[in-house]
Design a protein around this nucleic acid. Structure first.
Lengths: 168, 168
DNA sequence: ATGAATTGTTTTATATCATAACATTTATTT
DNA sequence: AAATAAATGTTATGATATAAAACAATTCAT
């Protein structure tokens, strides 16, 4: 009779698999689908993919969405403030903001109080763009929530993810 | 008496905040901390940050970890197969594999059956490296699980994240 | 008033990722 | 069997993201 060891040692003619000697401690190797960081990355890419497809027509990237949303929530904030909230280096924020200004949806205003800083605002066209943007985003977000199973699952996920985000 | 509208209209001398006229529909704007994609990205960056710091000494990046782990689980797989499992374009996989080969931890073997493909294997040194790698990774993963609250929370998170990952 | 810190900016380097083209080899069609 | 199509690894290239260093103008701190 064939022992378990024999079975483990047998080569698989179907898949042309290697002998067991080649991968002994395989059982202690983590399944990719159980590695938090890996599953996290795959999920993030998938959600961003949906986002990018959703905003293909408006040609808006996630970072730009976030910037416009933050400016709308609290107009007048400085570049550094917006950048820092999003974890974007202020050096890299410059080009991003240039783009939004070139599109005419946001603008820099030099404040008389501190002549170093620029306070950020939406333009009138930016306000119109905002409502379009939010409409597209709502559809996207609903699609994501549906994938999760509902609002309760969304809330649970957000809570768990919040525990992972460092203090930065 | 001051109405709610009045309060909403009042400028804040502390923060130098804009007038309410500047951001009327602010209540319909999503909080960044409630946007799945955003929270997901921040969490992923944080987990990867811990990973990168954990592997600073071994100079191993997440993608390289995944490749070595997959090769160890199933030696002999083709480059394309490993690349596809990880969502890495086969063109970009070449340089990654070059690096692992140059470090002497993995190797390409040309299979006699299909002279196009290369089957991937760990070297003897790669096997030694693997156990170091797993030791470092276990510490990292435990840290992440601890942040989440425990194994149950980890399992729940993995399940929810799995629902988000597209069919790719 | 002088030195230190902040803010926006430019420049540069690196890493990531997608696409196209190619040679070699294998599979499929005629 | 010959011709065509597809798979595999590779190279080259461009786009994007991200980090770090240096700088000028301005404000803050001592």
């Amino acid at each position: 009779m064939m022992t378990l060891e024999d079975e483990a040692m047998a080569a698989d003619p179907e898949t042309g698999q290697r002998l067991a000697a080649d991968n002994e401690g395989v059982s202690q190797l983590p399944e990719m689908s159980s590695i938090v960081g890996y599953v996290l990355r795959r999920a993030q890419l998938s959600v961003f993919q949906d986002f990018i497809e959703s905003f293909a027509e408006l040609k808006l990237r996630p970072a730009e969405f976030s910037v416009l949303n933050l400016i709308a929530q609290r107009p007048g904030q400085k570049q550094s403030e917006i950048a820092e909230q999003l974890g974007i280096k202020r050096a890299n924020f410059v080009a991003l903001m240039d783009g939004l200004e070139r599109r005419g949806v946001a603008e820099r205003r030099k404040s008389p109080e501190d002549k170093r800083s620029h306070s950020l605002h939406l333009t009138a066209e930016g306000e119109r763009f905002l409502s379009e943007m939010l409409s597209v985003w709502n559809a996207h977000e609903q699609r994501i929530i549906q994938r999760l199973g509902g609002d309760a699952e969304r809330d649970k996920l957000i809570e768990l993810l919040g525990r992972l985000s460092g203090p930065d």
